Amino acid sequence: MTTKQMTMKGQNVKEGAGIVSFMTVAAWIALGIGLLTCLFEVSDFSDRNLGLMVGVGFLVGSVQIYMIGAAIRLFHHNKTKQAE
Rank of each mutant, 00 (worst) to 15 (best):
V56T: 14
Q5L: 10
K79S: 15
G61N: 07
Y66M: 15
H76P: 00
H76C: 02
C38V: 12
T37D: 12
L74W: 03
G16L: 01
A27V: 05
L50W: 04
G51H: 06
M23W: 02
G32M: 05
M6D: 13
I33S: 01
A27T: 04
G10E: 06
Q11H: 11
L59F: 06
H77W: 03
K14W: 05
V13G: 01
R73Y: 02
D47K: 07
L36Q: 11
V13T: 03
T80A: 14
G57N: 09
H76V: 13
N49V: 07
S62P: 07
L31V: 03
M23S: 14
E84M: 02
L39W: 02
L39R: 04
V56R: 11
A71C: 06
V63N: 00
V42W: 14
A26H: 03
V25I: 11
L59T: 12
V56W: 13
I29N: 03
A26Q: 05
S62A: 15
K81C: 07
E41F: 05
E84W: 01
T24K: 03
G18I: 04
T2Q: 08
Y66V: 09
K4H: 10
F40R: 11
A27S: 13
N49A: 06
D47I: 15
V60W: 01
K4I: 14
I29W: 03
E84C: 01
V63T: 10
Q5H: 08
V54R: 04
A30G: 09
A83C: 03
I65A: 13
V63P: 00
S62R: 01
T2K: 06
Y66R: 07
S21T: 09
W28I: 11
E15Y: 03
V63Q: 03
A71P: 00
V20M: 08
D44S: 14
N49L: 05
D47V: 09
F75M: 06
V54A: 13
A70M: 12
Q5P: 00
G51R: 01
G32V: 05
I19M: 11
V13I: 05
A83T: 08
I19Y: 06
S46N: 15
F45T: 13
F75I: 04
T80M: 12
W28Q: 07
G32T: 06
V60P: 03
R48Y: 12
I29Y: 07
M67H: 08
A71N: 09
F58I: 08
R73L: 02
V20W: 01
L31Y: 10
E15G: 00
G57D: 07
H76Q: 08
I68S: 04
M6H: 04
R48Q: 14
R48K: 11
G18S: 09
L31M: 14
S62T: 06
M23K: 04
S43N: 14
D47W: 15
I19S: 08
I29V: 15
L39F: 13
Q82R: 09
K79M: 10
M8K: 10
A70S: 10
I19K: 01
S43I: 12
G51Q: 06
I65S: 06
G32F: 02
I33Y: 12
Y66P: 00
M67L: 13
I19E: 11
